[in-house]
């Protein structure tokens, strides 16, 4: 069980949250080419160490937060509002 410290609600169980994926991908500008959009939609760095990711606190404040979690140990080292 992950214990995620929500900046608004305090430490809560992972079951209150919904995972929303990699927070390091950035949408390219509107004039970017198809390759840049394909990269944005499909490519993932998928590291085995620190991963910045979105979690939506559906069972709490219903806000989106950015969490830095270790993808192998599952340790959480930083949480921030988006």
């Amino acid at each position: 069980m992950l214990r995620i410290p929500c900046p608004w609600c305090g430490v809560r169980d992972e079951t209150e949250f919904r995972y929303r994926g990699d927070a390091s991908v950035a949408r390219p500008g509107e004039h970017a080419d198809a390759a840049a959009f394909a990269e944005f939609v499909y490519s993932r760095r998928n590291p085995s160490d620190w991963h910045r990711e979105w979690w939506l606190h559906v069972g709490g404040c219903r806000r989106l937060i950015a969490v830095e979690r270790h993808a192998t140990t599952h340790a959480i080292r930083a949480v921030a509002p988006p």
Binding site: M1, L2, D13, E14, T15, Y19, D22, N46, S48, H51, E53, R69, A71, T72, T73, H74
Partner: peptide, 13 residues
């Protein structure tokens, strides 16, 4: 389990 992981184990939920 629902989030990126290389931990070869599962969680309780």
């Amino acid at each position: 389990d629902g989030y990126n992981s290389y931990g070869q184990r599962g969680t309780l939920p």
